[in-house]
Design a binder for these strands. Structure first.
Lengths: 194, 194
DNA sequence: CGGAACCTACCGATCGGTCGGTAAACGAGG
DNA sequence: CCTCGTTTACCGACCGATCGGTAGGTTCCG
């Protein structure tokens, strides 16, 4: 078992994961070769395999890395306690195009058969929907201003965030993702200042 | 130039395109091998290359096929003249999981570098946004009931459709995509019966 | 000494694509 | 109707590249 002790090894692993995120953003998971990731951190492919014994292990590393550190990643929606926070997340994502691209590409791939990230996204969706519904209920009670229940609104918030990212990624300089998201928030609560 | 005349050849090409759509749904575009597509229609990989001289040409064929025939595909949003039609599109998509999966997978891949479908999706988004805005304006004038302009609302409708598909594809039996979309329509127009 | 951190040398599989053929269908001319 | 050249519809053999992964080291640090 590599990388167990030693801050040295842990740092190297993180370096590798960051490189993997970049490569996946450029080529997707299937298109990302271990060799390309290895080269980015100055390793051979086999050197990389010392830290992550298989490509799938590396992907798991990427997914885990996001869950831990990534306090600005797309779905940190899992955490925020107010709707204003979700807006901040979108804003932050607009400045993290590489990470957004990585996870948008992964999300797309994950709908194909036996994709190693499929389970991750399914569980993630469930979790985020739950927490988001709780957040909405905390903010507005059992009925939003629009008349929707929190359970009805939560999937819509997620869908908007995901969907806007694709439009934005295809026209990063033209498409104003945060503004579009704010429009949606106005839809949820017409009285909101924002 | 193959397939120019002859209904025979044209039919074969369509057969191939349909097979390609299936394979892409299972493996994505990068993961889809010409051999796998060829096998589905009882051809060798070289036989397939007779009809589509390269893998990219096959993808173009898939994209074109959708634009023509696919009157129920995800984005036929380009056509409908009323909002009720968009609801019908979503409903139809809920019964076309293979095609939805294909284009969701392609959309995801298309955000990676130099993807052959990137231009297609970008142009498609522009077009659909325009037409949808026109539809919205026709239905409600310059301000929707929620106060949004048609140009503000159009990207949101698209984002919802795209985003809901990913959640649905990850839980096809549990997640009620049409119901979620109707919730969104209620957000757009609280007075709607639906 | 022992384990972590690598690397060289390979391997079998798969990929998209080329080359060069063959066989059948087809249209035109006699 | 029958030839005959052309096009269409394929297939077998092959190729160079790349892929993820294994086996078996060596170096170096604690």
């Amino acid at each position: 078992m590599p990388t167990q002790h030693g801050a040295r090894g842990r740092a190297r692993r993180e370096e590798i994961v960051r490189a993997a995120i970049e490569v996946i953003a450029e080529r997707g998971y299937r298109g990302a070769s271990l060799a390309a990731v290895a080269e980015k951190v100055g390793l051979t492919q086999q050197g990389l395999l010392h830290y992550f014994p298989s490509k799938e292990d590396l992907l798991i590393g990427v997914l885990r890395f996001r869950e831990q550190t990534d306090s600005g990643g797309r779905d940190t929606v899992a955490e925020p306690m107010t709707m204003a926070d979700t807006e901040a997340v979108v804003e932050a994502n607009a400045n993290r195009i590489a990470i957004v691209r990585t996870f948008s590409a992964l999300l797309g791939e994950s709908v194909t058969e036996d994709h190693p990230a499929a389970e991750y996204f399914r569980d993630r969706y469930r979790l985020v929907r739950e927490r988001l519904a709780a957040t909405l209920r905390l903010e507005w009670g059992d009925r939003l201003p629009s008349g929707l229940t929190p359970e009805e609104a939560a999937p819509l918030v997620i869908a908007i965030m995901d969907g806007l990212q694709y439009q934005w990624l295809h026209e990063p300089e033209t498409f104003d993702m945060p503004a579009a998201f704010r429009s949606f928030l106005r839809l949820l609560d017409p009285k909101a200042a924002s």
